[in-house]
């Protein structure tokens, strides 16, 4: 896994995401999810490009069931973009990289 992406879970979510000064993109994924594996390199590329402005995090929904449930996640991959503890945007499924870039650069 790329070092630019922070592994977060139920216990660290509040501190790392909601309390973060920088905006945070959280990739909710699981090992059994093919499309999650497929978009991972794309998220890593974005982290390399925008890592100075945005914090990139990933949350394994298998090991951390409380957080996805809190945000009503029923499909993965789901990417949620947080800023100042609030949900700015949410993307479900595989989307073009340009759409993710657009979401990130909106802040």
């Amino acid at each position: 896994m790329a070092k630019d992406i922070l592994e977060i879970g139920d216990s660290s979510f509040d501190a790392e995401v909601l309390q973060s000064e920088k905006p945070v993109l959280v990739d909710f994924w699981a090992p059994w999810c093919g499309p999650c594996r497929a978009i991972a390199p794309m998220v890593e590329e974005l982290a390399a490009a925008f890592g100075d402005k945005v914090k990139f995090a990933k949350c394994n929904v298998d090991e951390n069931p409380a957080t996805p449930s809190k945000f009503g996640i029923k499909s993965i991959p789901t990417l949620i973009f947080f800023n100042q503890g609030k949900v700015l945007d949410k993307i479900v499924g595989i989307v073009p990289k340009s759409q993710l870039e657009e979401m990130i650069t909106k802040v």
Partner: peptide
């Protein structure tokens, strides 16, 4: 996608 979302 059942394999993605079935476990939910």
């Amino acid at each position: 996608c059942a394999t993605c979302d079935g476990p939910f």
